[in-house]
Design a protein around this nucleic acid. Structure first.
Lengths: 337, 337
DNA sequence: CTGTTAGCGCATTCAT
DNA sequence: ATGAATGCGCTAACAG
């Protein structure tokens, strides 16, 4: 491949009869340029279709005007919504966004961190993998105060933005209790996941406060697993009359299970799931959900990062964003018309 | 901000008692290094936690090992799935992915193109905005053969990957016809959208072949609009007995409309929508869909790009990927058990 | 207000 | 097999 001669700052300087510094100043909006000269240079820039080289600027300065984002997947609406929000804030701050996926595997995440280090990103937004060892936390320290954890925490010393998982789940559970339900089943997936643990904790607390006995099924990871768990609990001695699901996947499975086995919702079993989903309102009955402030998670995370970049603070901030209980029919409420 | 002294190739060179050239060779896997020296240098690199500067490498070479992706939105599962696939292929080719969103606005897309030009990305994958003027096409020429259009074409001279929109919709329409339906309504959104036009064309052809009169409603952009269109067609002189929807948003609206007005699916009105969606299989009745090869769209697009980067071809390639008709219940078929 | 100069960190001739 | 020197395109002192 023959070296392509792109138009450089020198070309612009020569064509407009000024020095490169002046051109540089014009590009960077410096006010130390005579108005007429500025206009002239801008003209030439347009004529030549000059675009400054990002690489060269980055090299000459100590920042790259770019930030990195690591999420487990991009196929999950949860993460792509976060990515979308982060992307928007980046644009607003004139930064380029680099996106990588970790597949929720620590090793992968470490590789991505390395890439971002090479890219010399100014800051980092990370939805950490569910299971992280000290290795991960140590590597993150390299970015010290230029990294924000979203959804899951990285550890003390790192700023983070999260959902009020425990509180929201407690609220959902309490709602079912207020509907008179006493035998409420909690179905969860991986109990090692911080968010899941928190939600379970909220559930447990709400049950305890009402002096009800908690009924928990963990490690559910398939339709069949959920089916087994629900059926067993339903057919138990004092069967269940309510279910709270720890995420929308489990929630949808649960809905399908109840539907498949003709267990009427909500008359037999009232039901609330964490996470809102596309057709929650369209299913019959419509599904009451805990809606996380997903878009905010990304937005606030990015805003915190930029605030940090502008005026570095040593202490880390931990923000909890409130979820909303979207009341629909599956909990036992009447449809609002 | 005081200049932070990062470890450079010089540090590594000094610490391992060799020249920078040798270190550079080790990094780039050149085979012209004595094995023992190589090992030594690699050791030092690890000890010092050295990470080569992407900016410096880019500047010294004529490529950046990065490619850019422009999609209208990241919140749409269609686009985020494409992004996910592209991202995977990029990783496999050791390239960094830069993602931007155009909000489906040409001006915005042009801005993103400019940013990517500054970034000197090696190549570009673009889902163009629905409405593009010559301006857009002209700007794209700058990237000539290093740009691939996905989903929508940019114009002649540009490589592209698309769905077989017309054919797939013809197949869906034909399927309803085979179920004995004769009054089939096509509901579409923006007729300026290339994909929508193609789908409508496929519908029209299938109807024509069966000597049936086409019934078309365009420019539907809300639940209310769809509701009005369907109700009018349904209550018409010879009411409709089938519907094909041009995308999943319209499809879901249509489903909700039929459900809301107690128009039985499929006995009264059989129904197929373009685009598969999360709960299509869970709704009652389950919804027959035309499933686009979304993931492939992104993957093939990216693969074409990398192939192009490795061995440039002047002629552009236009690939059409086949969609699949996912038979479920709404078309009138029986549920497979 | 403006131009000259010296790096930024790396790949790359060209010698050795 | 290896190193010294040069330049990639730009910004940032430092003069003028």
């Amino acid at each position: 491949m023959s070296r392509i001669r792109r138009t450089t700052i020198h070309d612009v300087a020569r064509a407009s009869g000024v020095g490169t510094t002046t051109v540089s100043r014009v590009i960077n909006g410096g006010k130390l340029v005579a108005p007429r000269v500025r206009v002239r240079v801008e003209e030439v820039i347009r004529e030549l279709g000059y675009q400054p080289s990002h690489a060269a600027r980055s090299l000459a300065q100590e920042h790259t005007q770019s930030i990195g984002l690591i999420v487990p997947r991009l196929t999950d609406p949860f993460f792509s919504l976060i990515a979308s929000a982060v992307q928007r804030i980046c644009r607003a701050n004139r930064h380029t966004l680099l996106i990588s996926t970790s597949l929720d595997v620590e090793e992968q995440a470490l590789e991505e961190l390395a890439v971002f280090e090479q890219q010399r990103v100014d800051g980092l937004i990370v939805v950490p993998p569910a299971r992280q060892t000290t290795l991960f936390r140590e590597y993150c320290r390299k970015f010290s105060d230029r990294i924000i954890a979203v959804d899951l925490p990285i550890g003390s010393g790192f700023s983070s933005v999260q959902t009020d998982n425990a509180h929201a789940m407690a609220k959902a559970t309490k709602h079912l209790i207020e509907h008179g339900r006493k035998r409420i089943l909690f179905i969860g997936s991986d109990p090692e996941l911080h968010t899941i643990r928190e939600r379970q904790r909220g559930y447990a607390e709400a049950m305890a406060r009402a002096r009800l006995e908690p009924i928990v099924c963990e490690k559910l990871d398939s339709f069949e697993a959920v089916e087994g768990a629900i059926l067993q609990a339903y057919k138990g001695k004092p069967g269940i009359d309510g279910i709270v699901a720890a995420n929308s996947t489990l929630g949808i499975y649960a809905f399908q299970v109840l539907q498949k086995h003709r267990i009427s919702i909500p008359s037999r079993v009232a039901f609330i799931t964490f996470d809102d989903f596309a057709l929650a309102d369209t299913l019959r009955p419509s599904v009451t959900c805990v809606a996380q402030p997903i878009e905010q998670l990304g937005r606030v995370g990015a805003e915190m990062l930029f605030a940090q970049l502008v005026s570095p603070q040593s202490r880390s901030r931990n923000v909890q964003l409130p979820s909303e209980l979207l009341i629909r029919e599956s909990c036992g409420c009447k449809r609002r018309s």
